[in-house]
Structures are given as structure tokens and as C-alpha cells.
């Protein structure tokens, strides 16, 4: 109502926008303003405190990509991300298919598979840290059972420590991926299944040729969620190894934290955060674009 006259109706007209405004302003400042600020910082030589007077251009990015710790972090993200996404998807799909076979006790099993998702990564990290600890954990248990030469000390070994983080992360998230696939399987049109059976398809063929290809959107969603979690992975690493042994399990998120707040290299920390944002954007933006363009309501 563009030509409202009474003060009351002017207020009514603007009220919705007034209600939304604080949230929007806060998001604009705290998200987009801060991204901009971090972006600017990444071009400065800030150390302990933001310092906008020392402009170094792309210097921080050059140093970043010449720094061995950053390459360790990227390599770890590659290993962690790939294994985490692939194994979680395979395990999640597998469990979902098994659970979809008219299983008695599904109501008990499903929450058991899913509960780790309710835990903090710190709790998960503590549990697995000690469970995989050679001194008291798995190695100790197996040896005390009589296999004296058994050795499992990955968590203490720089070459393998990152894989222990993969194990814990999979434990935490695979149940959730299972739930996503289960929802997808339950959404498959039953008539398609019947039609395929009438066509003589075996269970194996049915899943391989009909049902799993229908899960494409779920694979995509799972990939986006898991990739997002992988790039942000920080808590779990801190709790399990704190980046160690040495710098063996550094991830980009850990790098950012250590350089910014530990080594007072704020400029480089900002640069690493910008790279992280770019990695996530490369995954999220195309996904959201296709989601919004494809499924636009109203």
C-alpha cells in the first residue's frame, strides 16, 4: 500500500522490514563485513594485532604457498577429505541399504548408528585418542590377550597419525550419511521397484541399475556436507593430536589458528582463512545455485 497516510499504517507497512533489519544488519557486518576485513588483513603485514599500514600485497599468499606447514595442511586435507567423504558415503549407503531390508529392530539400530553425531568433536577426540593410544588402548588390549607382538601406534607416528583422525571422523559422521541415504531410499517410488522386478531384475541388479542411480541427489548432498565438515575440521584434530606428532596432522583450519593466535602471524592467518573460504565457496556456491534454480518454490 504505497500511499498510506496514517502514521499507524506507515508503521504497519514498515514494521516487517524493521523487524528483519537488525538481523540483516548484524549478518552484513559480522559475516560480510568481517570477510572483507579479513580479506584486507591478508594483504597486510599484521602480526599480533591488525595493522593496516604495512601493505604487502600478495606477500602473505606467496609466503603461505612457500611454507612447508601449509603444504602439510593441504596434503592432510586431501587425504582426510578424500577418505572421509568416500568411506562415509560407501558405509552410509551400505548401512542404509541393509537397514532398508525390512529389518526387525531398525528402531533400535538406527539411533545407535546416529548418536555420535550428537557428540562434540572434542568428546569423540578424547574417546578415540585414548582408545588408539598404544599405552592403554587397542594395542595394550590385544597384547594382554596374548598377541605380544601386536603393534598399532599410528596415532604416535607422523606418517599415519592423520588416518587415526579419519577413523574417528568416520565414526562420528557415517551414521548421519546413513540416515540421509535411508531417507532417499524410502523416497524411491515403489512402483519402479515392482516394475523392475517384473522385468526380472535380481536384487543386485535392482540396486545397481535402478535404485543407486536414483540416489544421485543424496550423494551430492552428502558430498557437500562432508566436504564442508572436512575443510572446517579443527576440533577433532586439536582433541586427538593437536596437530602432532610435530606438524604431521595440521589441517588448514589448524594452520590458521596456530599462525594467527600462536605465532602472531595474523596476515598469513588471514590469508589461509581466505583460501579456506575459497575452497568452501567452490563447493557450496554451485551446489546452492543448482538447488535454488532447480527447486525454486512460489
Amino acid at each position: 500500500m504505497a500511499r498510506a497516510q496514517h502514521p499507524r499504517s506507515i508503521l504497519q507497512e514498515w514494521l516487517p522490514r524493521l523487524v528483519l533489519a537488525p538481523s540483516f544488519a548484524v549478518v552484513l557486518l559480522f559475516v560480510y563485513g568481517f570477510i572483507l576485513f579479513t580479506g584486507v588483513l591478508s594483504f597486510t603485514g599484521s602480526k599480533l594485532l591488525p595493522d593496516l599500514t604495512t601493505w604487502v600485497g600478495l606477500g602473505n599468499y606467496q609466503r603461505l604457498f612457500n611454507h612447508p606447514n601449509w603444504w602439510t595442511a593441504l596434503a592432510n586435507l586431501g587425504i582426510f577429505g578424500t577418505l572421509y567423504i568416500v568411506i562415509c558415503s560407501v558405509l552410509g549407503l551400505g548401512l542404509a541399504i541393509l537397514l532398508d531390508q525390512k529389518i526387525r529392530g531398525e528402531g533400535v539400530l538406527r539411533p545407535i548408528y546416529l548418536y555420535p553425531m550428537a557428540l562434540s568433536f572434542i568428546v569423540t577426540g578424547v574417546a578415540w585418542k585414548w582408545f588408539l593410544d598404544p599405552g592403554i588402548g587397542l594395542e595394550h588390549v590385544i597384547r594382554s590377550l596374548g598377541w605380544e607382538s601386536f603393534s598399532f601406534r599410528w596415532i604416535k607416528d607422523g606418517r599415519f597419525a592423520i588416518y587415526t583422525i579419519v577413523i574417528a571422523a568416520i565414526w562420528q559422521s557415517s551414521g548421519f550419511v546413513m540416515a540421509m541415504f535411508l531417507a532417499g531410499l524410502r523416497g524411491v517410488d515403489n512402483e519402479i521397484v515392482k516394475a523392475a522386478q517384473i522385468d526380472g531384475a535380481s536384487n543386485w541388479t535392482l540396486y545397481r541399475r535402478i535404485i543407486i542411480p536414483l540416489m544421485r541427489p543424496v550423494f551430492l548432498s552428502a558430498f557437500v556436507v562432508l566436504a564442508h565438515l572436512a575443510i572446517k575440521s579443527y576440533d577433532l584434530v586439536v582433541a586427538m593430536t593437536d596437530g602432532g606428532p610435530g606438524t604431521a596432522t595440521w589441517t588448514p583450519a589448524l594452520f590458521m589458528q596456530k599462525f594467527t593466535f600462536g605465532r602472531n602471524e595474523m596476515g598469513m592467518g588471514a590469508a589461509s582463512a581466505i583460501i579456506m573460504l575459497m575452497m568452501i565457496s567452490a563447493i557450496i556456491v554451485p551446489y546452492l545455485y543448482s538447488e535454488l534454480a532447480g527447486g525454486r518454490r512460489t
Partner: peptide
């Protein structure tokens, strides 16, 4: 407005730590 708020769900929070 909604798109901007939606996108804010996905940022790695490392990017806002310093500010």
C-alpha cells in the same frame, strides 16, 4: 536478503575469528 543470510551458514568461521 535471504540469499545473503543463507550463504552465511556456510562460511568457515576461521574467516571471522580475527575481526
Amino acid at each position: 536478503v535471504f540469499t545473503l543470510m543463507l550463504l552465511s551458514c556456510f562460511i568457515p568461521f576461521q574467516i571471522v575469528l580475527i575481526p
